[in-house]
Nucleic acid binder design. Structure first.
Length: 472
DNA sequence: CTATGGCACGGATT
DNA sequence: AATCCGTGCCATAG
C-alpha cells in the first residue's frame, strides 16, 4: 500500500499524502462527493472524464475487459468475489419503496427528477386545482426519508384552510409512489403501506395493531413483549415483525432499510449504502459482486492539458499552477488508494463472511478489526477508518452499518433469540446460558441477561402469560 | 431461595 | 489513551 505512493514521480508528498488518504478513507459517500465537487470547482488541474460503461447495466467498466456482470454471466473467478467501483447514480432507486413486489416505478430512475416532482406528477390528475398550493407546500416539506417535517396544523394555519383539507391532500400524497410518502411519522407510513398491500395480498391480521400499538416494541425488537400485547405467542409476534420488516418501509424516501432499530438510535442515518453487495443473476451460488459506490460519475484525473500548459505558465502564476497540479495529483492518488483499500477490505470480508452475507446474522463469524488489519497488512486504524460510518447493502437489500460486521456477539445473540423463540416455557437466564454453552457459546449467565436486554427481550418471569401456549 | 439488574473491574479492542 | 465488553459480586424483588 505504502509503496504505491512512492513511485510518484513528484516531490515527496508522503506525509501529506498519508494524511489525506486517511481523511478520504473515513469519508462516507456524500461527504466525499462534496469534497470532490469543491476540488473540481476550485482546482483547474482536475477534470472529470467519462469512462466506458457497460451499455447494458451502465456500470463503469474498469479496464478494458467486458462488463463482468452482464457480458459474462458465467464468471469463473474461483469463488472470489468480483469487485469494482461504480458511480453512485446507478444505484439510487428511491422508488423501490416496497421491496419484493411489483411496482418498480422505473420512471423514478429514468427521469432524474426529485421526489417532490415525482409525486406531484402522480397526484396532479386527482388534485383539486385549489389544493395545488397545499400539495406543493407539503411536498417541499419532505425530509430525505420522505416524511413530512412540519406539522399539518402549521400548514393549515399558514394557508388558512381547515385541517381536514390538508389531511385529504396528505392522503392523496401518501398513496402515491413511493407508498407512504408524506406521512408525518414512520408509523403512519407503515400503516398506509399495509393498507394498500392488503388489497392485493394476504397480510397478518395483527400487523396493523402491532404497528399502531407496538411501534416502540417493534423498533426495540421486543418481540415477546409484543406477543403479550397482541395476546399471541412470541413466535407469532416475531413472524409479524418479520413481515413488517420484509414488506414495509418506515422511510418511504429511502430506497431500502436495514434494521428497524437502527434509525431510532444514535447511528448516523444512512442515505444510501457506500458499498453494495449483490449476487450475480440473483443466484446465491455465484460469486458475490461487490461494488464500491463512488459518489461521482466517470473518473477523476489530472487534466493532461493543464500539465502541458504548466511550462508555459506566466512567471507570476507558475507557483500557483504548480501547487494546483500537485494538489490534483495528490487527490487523485489518494482517491485511488482509498478505493484500493476499500476493495481489498471488502474482498477479504466477503470471503470471510460469505455465509453471513447470504444467510443472515446467525452465521457471522466474529472478527476484529485488528485481525483483519493483520491479514491485509495494514494498520488497525486504517481498518477502523475505513469501517467507520460506512453502510453496506446486502443482497437482500438491507442496509447495515459496516461496523455490525465486527460485532463480537451478534451470532450468540441470534442463537439466544432463537432459543427464546423456540422455548416452550420461559427459561431463566441461567438455563439459557446452559443451552448456549451446549451450543458452544461459552457465556456467563450475567452476559445472557445483557444480550437479552440488547435485544429488548423481557426477563423470564415477565414472559409467562403467552409463551407457554401451544405452538404449531 | 432464585432470578435479575446495577455497579465496577480488568482485559480486549479501537 | 479512550472505549467497549464480559463478568463477578451484591442488593433487591418476587
Amino acid at each position: 500500500m505504502l509503496l504505491q505512493s512512492q513511485h510518484t514521480s513528484l516531490r515527496p508528498l508522503t506525509t501529506a499524502h498519508l494524511a489525506q488518504t486517511m481523511t478520504l478513507l473515513e469519508l462516507t459517500g456524500e461527504e466525499l462527493r462534496q469534497k470532490i465537487e469543491a476540488q473540481l470547482a476550485s482546482n483547474p488541474a482536475l477534470e472529470l472524464i467519462d469512462t466506458a460503461r457497460c451499455p447494458h447495466c451502465h456500470r463503469l467498466l474498469s479496464g478494458s475487459g467486458p462488463c463482468p456482470v452482464c457480458s459474462s454471466p458465467n464468471i469463473s473467478t474461483g469463488g472470489e468475489p468480483i469487485v469494482f467501483v461504480s458511480p453512485r447514480k446507478d444505484f439510487s432507486t428511491p422508488g423501490r419503496g416496497l421491496s419484493g413486489d411489483e411496482q418498480p416505478s422505473e420512471e423514478w430512475t429514468a427521469a432524474a427528477e426529485d421526489l417532490p416532482t415525482f409525486v406531484l406528477r402522480q397526484i396532479s390528475p386527482e388534485l383539486e386545482p385549489a389544493d395545488r398550493q397545499l400539495a406543493a407546500h407539503l411536498l417541499t416539506s419532505l425530509d430525505e426519508d420522505g416524511l413530512l417535517s412540519v406539522p399539518l396544523l402549521e400548514i393549515s394555519r399558514y394557508h388558512h384552510v381547515p385541517l381536514s383539507r390538508v389531511e385529504n391532500v396528505q392522503k392523496l400524497i401518501q398513496h402515491a409512489e413511493p407508498l407512504g410518502v408524506g406521512s408525518s411519522t414512520p408509523q403512519e407510513a407503515l400503516l398506509v403501506q399495509l393498507e394498500v398491500l392488503a388489497e392485493s395480498r394476504a397480510v397478518p391480521d395483527l400487523a396493523a395493531l402491532a404497528i399502531k400499538e407496538g411501534m416502540d416494541l417493534l423498533s426495540r425488537r421486543a418481540y415477546s413483549e409484543l406477543g403479550r400485547l397482541l395476546h399471541k405467542p412470541t413466535s407469532e409476534a416475531v413472524e409479524i415483525a418479520e413481515f413488517i420488516s420484509e414488506n414495509l418501509n418506515p422511510f418511504p424516501g429511502r430506497a431500502h432499510w436495514g434494521e428497524v432499530h437502527q434509525a431510532s438510535e444514535s447511528y448516523p442515518v444512512y442515505k444510501d449504502a457506500d458499498i453494495v453487495i449483490s449476487c450475480v443473476n440473483e443466484n446465491p451460488n455465484t460469486p458475490l459482486l461487490i461494488e464500491i459506490v463512488s459518489p461521482y460519475a466517470g473518473s477523476l484525473r489530472v487534466n493532461p492539458l493543464f500539465r502541458q500548459a504548466l511550462s508555459l505558465a506566466p512567471t507570476d502564476k507558475a507557483d500557483q499552477w504548480q501547487s494546483d497540479l500537485d494538489e490534483a495529483v495528490l487527490l487523485v492518488k489518494c482517491l485511488q488508494q482509498r478505493d484500493h483499500t476499500l476493495v481489498r477490505l471488502m474482498t477479504r470480508l466477503a470471503v470471510l463472511q460469505r455465509h453471513y452475507i447470504l444467510e443472515g446474522d446467525a452465521l457471522i463469524v466474529p472478527i476484529t478489526r485488528a485481525q483483519l488489519a493483520e491479514e491485509l497488512e495494514v494498520h488497525e486504524s486504517t481498518i477502523s477508518r475505513a469501517v467507520a460510518g460506512k453502510a453496506v447493502q446486502l443482497p437482500n437489500r438491507k442496509i447495515v452499518p459496516l461496523s455490525k460486521w465486527f460485532d463480537r456477539s451478534l451470532h450468540i445473540r441470534t442463537a439466544l433469540i432463537q432459543i427464546i423463540a423456540d422455548e416452550r416455557r420461559p427459561l431463566s437466564d441461567t438455563e439459557i446460558a446452559g443451552l448456549l454453552i451446549k451450543q458452544g457459546y461459552f457465556v456467563a449467565r450475567r452476559t445472557v441477561a445483557k444480550y437479552r436486554m440488547m435485544e429488548g427481550i423481557l426477563p423470564a418471569r415477565l414472559r409467562h402469560s403467552n409463551s407457554n401456549l401451544p405452538m404449531r
